[in-house]
Amino acid sequence: MIRKYVDVICLNDKGGNTRPLCLIWDEVRKIPITSIKEICPRSSLKAGGSGMRYTCVFSSRLVRHLFYDRGKWYVEMHDHVI
């Protein structure tokens, strides 16, 4: 597993909370985030890293963890996918 750093469009609300809205995978694919199931501090033991973990449901009903670590967003993915 590796960390793939991604661009993310976020909403910073009046209460100071950050909510990721859309994940920009590459120049073509933009994946909207339908809902967020859980936000908690977690480390990623498989891909490495540690930060705030957002359990996101994407439009395709796919559930994935999105990590926010010191100003950067990343997802965990298998090496062979790239």
Partner: peptide, 13 residues
């Protein structure tokens, strides 16, 4: 027990 669990899971150390 809580500290051991949380530091390992939340921070990774």
């Amino acid at each position: 027990k809580d500290l051991l669990y949380r530091v390992r899971n939340e921070i990774g150390l």
